[in-house]
Write a protein that binds this DNA or RNA. Structure first.
Lengths: 117, 117
DNA sequence: GCTATTGTTAACCTTATGGCTAACAATGCG
DNA sequence: CGCATTGTTAGCCATAAGGTTAACAATAGC
């Protein structure tokens, strides 16, 4: 139950469709704030807030270039969220394997009765 | 920018430390609502709400057993969130590879000047 | 130096989130 | 039956989230 605020923010960042769209778009290459505003059909302040959420989650960075801001995916963007999900899946699959092995061993020790009839 | 409400809910479900703790705990094996309430130091209604969020995200299921509810991880729990992150990483890494290949090709076509002295 | 462009900040509104207590429903057990 | 146990629901509160418009700041270009 470690206090991991960055992980909170990473998952929260991914929980909004506009923010996921921004990340998908940035995986293809950088874009400016203005382009994002035009593409996603919300006002400039709305995009500005989404970008702040993404930055504070360590998902994107911006390069200020004159009056335009070029947005890019951050190195190791969302690695922490990915790692948490991966580890969680591993634990869960290991658990399932254990259960399955247990059931298999039970069958070997005490095999089910022969086909009736 | 597909309208994917389940993905929204999956990521939102993971964005709260208590909910992540519940999922981590359930990867070890099932627990009851009462155990969760005792372990995570919030009221019963608070846990009840968290569980609802996790259920609506398809992350857990409950087996009602008399008056106690046994909580379990759902099959393929959070697969959609995991898939989205995985695909996003692949796109991003492919993009980086492309950039790197481009730079390498540039070097081959027009090699840098020999070491100055 | 003006004016257009690009983006943020301020202020506001509405809805959602996360917590609580108190009351209710349903099951288990003496 | 009567009472304890297990959870949910209802109602309330405070704060966060997501959106808007209007105003501001800073750069670009004439």
């Amino acid at each position: 139950m470690a206090n991991n605020a960055l992980l909170d923010r990473s998952f929260a960042a991914c929980s909004h469709p506009i923010r996921r769209s921004i990340l998908e778009r940035l995986a293809q290459g950088e874009m400016t704030v203005g382009q994002a505003t035009r593409d996603f059909g919300v006002s400039k302040p709305a995009i500005s807030k989404h970008l702040k959420v993404l930055e504070e989650a360590g998902a994107i960075v911006r390069v200020i270039d004159g009056r335009t801001h070029r947005l890019q995916l951050q190195e190791r963007s969302l690695d922490d969220a990915y790692s948490w999900l991966t580890q969680q899946r591993e634990l869960w699959e290991r658990k399932l394997d254990t259960v399955e092995r247990y059931l298999r061993e039970q069958r070997e020790i005490k095999p089910p009765p022969k086909e009736p009839k």
